[in-house]
Each structure stands twice: as structure tokens, then as C-alpha cells.
Design a protein around this nucleic acid. Structure first.
Length: 154
DNA sequence: GCCAACGTTGGC
DNA sequence: GCCAACGTTGGC
């Protein structure tokens, strides 16, 4: 039985259209320990992901992806020229992790944050809670299915 | 661009 | 180990 997650990305940086084009990518640049723990230990091959556009117009869930490779050290943290470079992260003692995800589907229209907040069945969903900035979040199966239906109906 | 929320850093 | 200062996220 797959697990369910929500991953945030700024579409100006990497959108679901980019993932659709590429087919597959690694989810780099997470520099928060709680999110790191989920990437390293939580996300399993075959898990399904709500692809969330943040800092977008509108912000919301744009589609679905699937985990195809479990956590491994984030190569961008080793690259001095990369914005995500971290001198404390080394090949021997990695701090930051990525997973690989593949494109599954793109909703016809984004399910905006406002619609998530308006849906009574989603009132316990983490992403709608005030001040919730975590970029990797676990999602209940029931919430995942409800959001997917909202996306497919739109 | 503003700013609330929240995580991290560093002086003590 | 406290907590003020600072940096980042992300909705608006």
C-alpha cells in the first residue's frame, strides 16, 4: 500500500509542466531538517505525491507524481556553484537528501489553496493550516483521494 | 513588495 | 540553554 505526500515547488523554479516535459526529476534543495527526515526515511518507492505550486497564481495542487527512487544524498549540496551548496554537507557525511519522482498526471486546472480550505473533509489537512511552511508533508489517504477527485473534476 | 510565521544562529 | 536577531517561506 503506497504512502501519500505533498511536495511544494515554486513553479517559477520547477513546475509540473517541467516535470511533465522531463518525465522524471530529483527533488533537490530541501534545507529543512523535518522535511529532510521525510525525504530520507519517509518517502518510499511507489508512494504518490500531490504536486503543490507555492508562490504561484494561484497557489495550489497542480497534479500528481510518484516516488521512483528513495532518499539519497542531495548532489546540489556538494556543488559550490549551486544555490543550494552547503559546506557542512560532504560525500562521507551527507546532511541533505533527495528522492526521484516521476510524472503521473497534471490536473486540467490547479486545485487552489482556497478550494482546499473550503472543503470540509480537508479541514485537518496540514497544507491549509496557518503558518504551515513545511515543503514535504505527509498526507492522509482520504485527503489525497479527495484532492485527486477535485483535480480530475475540474 | 509586505509581513506573519517560524526555523536557525550565535552571544552570553 | 536562553532568547534576540536574523533569514526564509509563502500567502496575499
Amino acid at each position: 500500500m503506497p504512502g501519500y505526500w505533498l511536495l511544494k515547488s515554486e513553479p517559477d523554479v520547477y513546475s509540473i509542466e517541467d516535470l511533465q516535459k522531463d518525465g522524471r526529476t530529483y527533488w533537490d534543495g530541501v534545507r529543512n531538517y523535518q522535511a529532510r527526515n521525510y525525504l530520507r526515511d519517509g518517502l518510499k518507492k511507489g508512494d504518490l505525491v500531490l504536486y503543490y505550486h507555492s508562490n504561484a497564481e494561484p497557489s495550489g495542487v497542480a497534479g500528481i507524481a510518484r516516488v521512483v527512487r528513495e532518499g539519497y544524498p542531495d548532489p546540489s549540496a556538494l556543488d559550490k556553484k549551486d544555490d543550494h551548496y552547503d559546506p557542512k554537507h560532504t560525500a562521507d557525511k551527507p546532511i541533505w537528501y533527495v528522492v526521484d519522482v516521476e510524472y503521473v498526471e497534471r490536473f486540467k486546472t490547479i486545485v487552489p489553496l482556497e478550494a482546499l480550505k473550503a472543503e470540509p473533509r480537508l479541514k485537518e489537512m496540514l497544507v491549509i493550516k496557518r503558518g504551515m511552511r513545511l515543503s514535504v508533508q505527509p498526507v492522509d489517504k482520504a485527503h489525497f483521494e479527495a484532492v485527486r477527485r477535485m483535480g480530475q473534476a475540474s
